[in-house]
Amino acid sequence: MRLKFFEYSKFLWWFAGEDPFILKNCNKTVRVKFSLIGILVITVMITTFISISYGLYKLLESYYVGLLIGFYTAVLVMFLYMFILYTVTKDVLPHKKGKSIEIFTSYIIRFGFLFALGLVVSQPIEYMLFSDEVNKLMNGKIIESIKEKNKSLNIEYSMKVKELEELNISNNDLKNEIIRFQEDKDLTLQQFMDYQYSRNFFIEKMILMDKHLIYIWFFSAVFIILFSLPVFLKIKIDFNTNYYKNKRIIQRDLLEWHYDKFLESYNAIIKEKFPSFTLTYKSPYADPPYNTQKISKPQLASESEFSKWLLNEGN
């Protein structure tokens, strides 16, 4: 039963960006390939939802905002993904082929977008998996910042003590001022420590993770492959499979039928408006309705060639 669903799932074929009506009449191998692409697209969408929701929750510390924007982002990614899948669907109708550099550039742009998307989506999930190691790195950085703050406060208050010493005040007053400075310094340092530990530093944690935990790039590569795999699999499906053959037959028949109806209607209108003339619509292309080969205009001969032709006709 599960295998039958996998072979005949219009739901999965829709996510693969192909026509379920044509696919249901194809062989098993083709149906399974497009079902696999659909499953991968759904996996990408779910992964995006989980990752973005978790990332926004950690950044904004709000479940509701994280879930709402995560769901919106997942749907947006799904439609962008569907759009890219549609663009790599093989054109079964006669068409002009683009230049190799143009085709190569278009693939670079598509896969570049998928690489970037996979890399961005991977970050929150990688933090989820390695939060202990990342938090240790962050704590080390916070401790260093506290030490630097303590050092700057010591310099600041030592300068103030020197200024008081130059005023030649009594030792008792100097001692009281030093105690007050020490209390102010301790309070300022404590406030700085509380502030540092109260922040989540989520973005900075991402930077530390990418910089120091080299092995997380393996997981980033896995995500990039996951996001690129459906498009790659769809490109690799052979043009000579019965899916594309059936699609070509259906689309050609449909397009040519509409073109014949257009000619019939157009010529009827011309005949109605100009009944005394024998006029019909003629396409400027040699292969209507595909319009890939334009009929070349007759080449006009030179005046000398015309004279030779005229003399030959006279003879």
Rank of each mutant, 00 (worst) to 15 (best):
M1V: 11
R2G: 03
L3V: 12
S9M: 03
L12R: 01
A16Q: 05
G17E: 01
E18Y: 03
D19P: 02
C26L: 00
C26H: 01
N27E: 08
V30M: 00
R31Y: 05
V32H: 05
V32E: 06
V41W: 01
T43V: 14
M45A: 05
T47E: 00
T48W: 03
I50K: 04
K58N: 15
E61D: 14
G66H: 14
L67F: 15
I69F: 14
F71I: 13
A74K: 06
M78F: 15
F79G: 03
L80D: 00
L80W: 05
I84E: 13
I84T: 12
I84M: 15
I84D: 13
L85W: 09
L85G: 08
T89V: 08
K90W: 08
P94M: 06
K96F: 08
G98L: 06
S100V: 14
I103Y: 06
S106H: 03
Y107A: 09
I109L: 11
R110A: 10
F111R: 01
G112V: 12
F115M: 13
L117N: 02
P124W: 06
I125D: 07
I125N: 09
I125F: 15
M138E: 14
G140S: 06
G140F: 02
G140L: 04
K141L: 08
I143H: 06
E144Q: 05
E148G: 07
K151Q: 13
I155F: 05
Y157D: 05
M159N: 14
K162T: 11
E165T: 04
E166S: 04
N168S: 07
N168F: 03
N168D: 11
D173I: 12
E177Y: 15
E183P: 05
K185H: 08
D186W: 08
L189G: 04
Y195R: 10
Q196K: 08
Y197H: 12
F201V: 03
F202V: 15
I203P: 04
I203V: 13
I203D: 01
M206G: 11
L208D: 09
L208M: 10
K211I: 12
L213V: 10
I214K: 11
I214G: 07
I216K: 01
I216L: 03
W217M: 02
F219V: 13
S220W: 09
I224N: 04
I225V: 15
L226P: 02
S228K: 00
V231P: 01
K234C: 12
K234T: 14
K234E: 13
N246C: 01
N246R: 07
R248T: 13
I250L: 06
R252E: 15
E256A: 03
E256F: 01
W257T: 12
F262Q: 10
S265G: 04
S265Y: 12
N267S: 05
I270T: 01
F277K: 04
F277S: 08
Y281A: 07
Y281G: 01
S283C: 08
S283G: 07
Y285N: 04
Y285W: 14
A286K: 08
P289N: 11
N291K: 01
L300D: 08
A301E: 14
S302F: 12
E303A: 08
F306M: 13
F306N: 14
W309Y: 07
N312I: 11
